[in-house]
Design a protein around this nucleic acid. Structure first.
Lengths: 252, 252
DNA sequence: CTTTCAATCTCGGGC
DNA sequence: GCCCGAGGTTGAAAG
């Protein structure tokens, strides 16, 4: 890991460090007093204050305040980040063509300027998504109910894609809408829309909302529409089959 | 701005810096080789690599890789962040009760450890759909009231930018605050702040909140401050992003 | 390239 | 506190 970090660099030195970091495709990090202007999909302005600025090697560009998880302003990966120093004014500009937009950060004073060239080849392994739930239901249909047989996933209707289509033990058609987290009224409305595609169907079609839980409003709406709810939690198992919790911190 | 930054601190020193930073409610920043485990709404694992770690005073906790805008793992504001050093293993844990979840970062080696205590009182001012409303009012001032003449938009005061400044048919100054959605008490307070910039003005200054509707609380506050409300709906959106793109090209 | 949709979405506002 | 809707959503996958 190569890196450089300086405290209280002046404007010119800050300019040098930023350029060096960007040209070396490093992780550039500043703590500085700045003001920010964004123009593009919308338009925003942020007055002067102390903030944290990050430029990643992939072109991601962020300005973080001391609050909130999200950056107050940003540019996505692949944006073109450049520093400029004109008439004694230091500015970092991140821009892109499609959509046309730019983020301008004017730096008044730098407390710390750094860049890092690190190594990180690991990718995140994650579980607990709706897709994991879909797989689980296909592999173990009895989790929905005894005798359930899924026939197709992502079944296309004129009102969108049905998560899972199947039949119950009596041969009645079942439409499943899956949610990986607590489901609200929107999920019920979505399910209802799918069922509306089967109004000309001869027999009764069952609609089932499958989620770890539902809001009270959603449960009421389910009853009103004569739909069902099946409690099911998304699987939380990571690949490899190892016992993650026990092995994780003792394995290195 | 107070801050501290050290290069290549050992595990014990890193532990001290993190604790000091958190206890002082500072912006804590690390560049370190680490591995990460998350368990809660979902579950994830990230093997060892060089990453950037941020703990904000509000409890926001992030782990950034050298790619992507979003952190690879995180905990939202108000999470409880603590460092622990046991059996020579340094770990930062961010957790919360509702929903129950935790993020554990095990640090193997630190390249840089810092904390910053900055000042930043400014809030982001953003103009999206409000922008269209402003244009509409400028083109058809009679929508506000008969005889209204807008004089300037984005008028700068020490308390921020006034959406529209103008005069009524009697020549009295009018400060307009636009909201594209139902306005709450915050909008009223904002308007009041702008009016406070005119306390030394000889004549009475009218403050008008322009929005499709207001909450009851906001309406009460308006009366208390002797401010006015004008119902106005934002222009029908014809695919906001595309409009913006077209404007961008035709104006340059 | 565009379109679509889930997300540990986040964030703010109302209730 | 829960719930709902918006977002410069982001990001990934599929067409």
């Amino acid at each position: 890991m190569k890196f450089l970090s300086e405290k209280n660099p002046d404007i010119h030195r800050t300019y040098e460090i930023i350029n060096e970091g960007i040209s070396k495709r490093a992780f550039v990090v500043l703590m500085a007093c700045c003001k920010v202007l964004y123009q593009g999909r919308a338009k925003s302005r942020l007055g002067s204050g102390d903030r944290f600025i990050i430029i990643k090697p992939d072109g991601s560009f962020m300005v973080h305040q001391d609050r909130n998880l999200e950056p107050v302003n940003w540019q996505p990966p692949k944006s073109n980040c450049k520093a400029s120093l004109e008439n004694g004014i230091l500015q970092i500009t991140g821009s892109r063509r499609n959509p046309p937009e730019s983020l301008e950060v004017e730096i008044h004073c730098t407390y710390m300027a750094s860049y890092f060239i690190g190594e990180d080849s690991k990718e995140l392994e994650i579980a607990g998504y709706e897709e994991n739930m879909r797989e689980m239901v296909f592999e173990s249909p009895e989790l929905i109910e005894e005798g359930f047989r899924p026939t197709s996933r992502e079944y296309q209707t004129e009102n969108g894609f049905i998560d899972i289509l199947g039949k119950d033990k009596n041969g009645a058609l079942m439409v499943l809408e899956l949610k990986s987290r607590r489901a609200g009224v929107n999920a019920v409305k979505q399910l209802k829309k799918y069922l509306d595609c089967f109004t000309d169907h001869k027999e009764f079609v069952r609609g089932v909302l499958v989620a770890p839980s539902v809001t009270d409003d959603a449960m009421e709406l389910l009853k009103e529409y004569q739909l069902e709810f099946k409690e099911l939690h998304p699987p939380m198992e990571l690949g490899g089959g190892k016992n993650l919790t026990l092995d994780f911190f003792s394995s290195s």
